[in-house]
Amino acid sequence: MSDIADAHDGQTHHPGAATYLIIAAFLVILTAMEVTVFYVHALHPVLVPLLIVLAAAKFALVVMFYMHLKYDQWLLTGVFIFPLIIATLLLVSLILLFAYLSNHMAPIG
């Protein structure tokens, strides 16, 4: 990957203000889309996947551009991504485990 080799010369080339503003515009648009999805009833059957995709896109934009992971050494990406994967798997598995628990538990109260 060419930008890996580039990043390894010790200099990080951060993008300029123009890039930052474009990213900000994307972030605002994505947020607006999220809120729209929330209010449009027709979209509610696909609410969860849509929202997750939109949030993931925002997440990726901030992390890659504002936090410069796209430009920095992949070492930093590794240090961040690995715990992030673990955190996501943890989230998913805890939710599923408890969903099972509540499906098979006598109701309380």
Binding site: V35, V37, F38, H44, L47, A55, F59, A99, S102
Partner: peptide, 16 residues
């Protein structure tokens, strides 16, 4: 960003 999505916007989605 994550909290806004999972907590606020998904408020109608039942929890586990």
């Amino acid at each position: 960003i994550i909290i806004f999505t999972l907590v606020y916007l998904m408020q109608a989605v039942p929890g586990a």
